[in-house]
């Protein structure tokens, strides 16, 4: 059983939902990323989505774009992200790490080399935003052969026939994008999300995470009532952006505890 699967089945046994915070590796500074990852875990994260900075993050809103830009100032590339995961794994072997990013850094490294290095570093899953299932079958096989999960996005516009195609290739969990737009965009429509998640469940037994519009504890609670996991990205990055070196850790802890409490209250 993969680390991601174990986490979901353990939570299910306890009747709990997963909290998955997203941070961009290297934001605000590469020296702080591993510390931040440990902070996320100690303040309630069940899994971490680690963003690989990219110069052209087409699917991201302004908040995560700025995080990428801050990281890129420090020449934060995929190779260094993998080194961070490796360092994190020295003291944490339990918390799954999902890399989220774009295809080009992986292709620049070469997919075989990436898979080998990611495996060695202790990465559990990979979500490549601009790799729809039709364009990444070979890459998925490489990931699967190395025992890593392929995480896919489903959107409000994804037709059932296409969901069928995606769930065939997806492993670990599915990531439902709760709104039409980029990360951190407008408020999500919880009734619509509920309807769509119920529809997706008819086509798969994989756990379903919901993200792209979780702005506060109240939305986190609403989403937790429907989904198996709540993904918090832009809101987390905003907390990092609004902090200085002195209060970075405490601000992240405060937000995480709010979210954890809200999710556990379901």
């Amino acid at each position: 059983m993969s680390r991601i699967q174990s986490v979901f089945s353990a939570l299910k046994a306890q009747g709990k939902k997963a909290l998955i915070p997203y941070i961009t590796a290297g934001d605000p500074h590469p020296d702080q990323t591993v510390t931040l990852m440990h902070t996320l875990v100690s303040s309630g994260a069940d899994m971490i989505e680690l963003g690989v900075p990219f110069s052209d993050p087409m699917a991201d809103g302004p908040v995560i774009q700025r995080a990428s830009e801050r990281a890129l100032v420090h020449k934060m590339g995929l190779r260094k992200v993998l080194e961070m995961v490796k360092t994190f794994r020295e003291t944490n072997q339990a918390t799954p790490i999902v890399l989220m990013g774009y295809a080009n850094p992986i292709e620049a490294m070469g997919s075989a080399k990436f898979v080998a290095l990611a495996k060695e570093a202790g990465v559990d899953g990979v979500l490549t935003v601009d790799y729809p299932p039709e364009e990444c079958e070979a890459f998925n096989r490489e990931l699967a052969d190395a025992g890593m999960d392929s995480i896919f996005l489903l959107s409000p516009t994804t037709e059932p026939s296409r969901t069928e195609l995606i769930v065939k290739q997806a492993t670990g969990f599915l990531y439902y994008v709760s709104l039409k737009g980029v990360t951190g965009a407008a408020n999500l429509d919880i009734t619509e999300v509920k309807k769509r998640v119920a529809e997706i469940r008819k086509q798969t037994t994989l756990p379903i995470g919901v993200g792209f519009g979780v702005k506060d504890a109240a939305t986190a609670r609403e989403v937790a009532a429907i989904a198996d996991a709540v993904v918090v990205g832009s809101r987390m990055v905003l907390a990092i952006e609004g902090s200085d070196a002195n209060n970075l850790i405490s601000n992240v802890q405060t937000l995480m505890k709010e979210l954890r409490t809200a999710i556990d209250s379901v």
Binding site: F54, D56, R79, N104
Partner: peptide, 22 residues
């Protein structure tokens, strides 16, 4: 330039060794 993926298609792309567009 190396081959890469940007703006929805795969093509020759000016990029650095990390795959960021220059």
């Amino acid at each position: 330039s190396p081959i890469g993926v940007l703006h929805g298609n795969r093509t020759y792309l000016m990029q650095d060794e990390d795959g960021n567009i220059i």
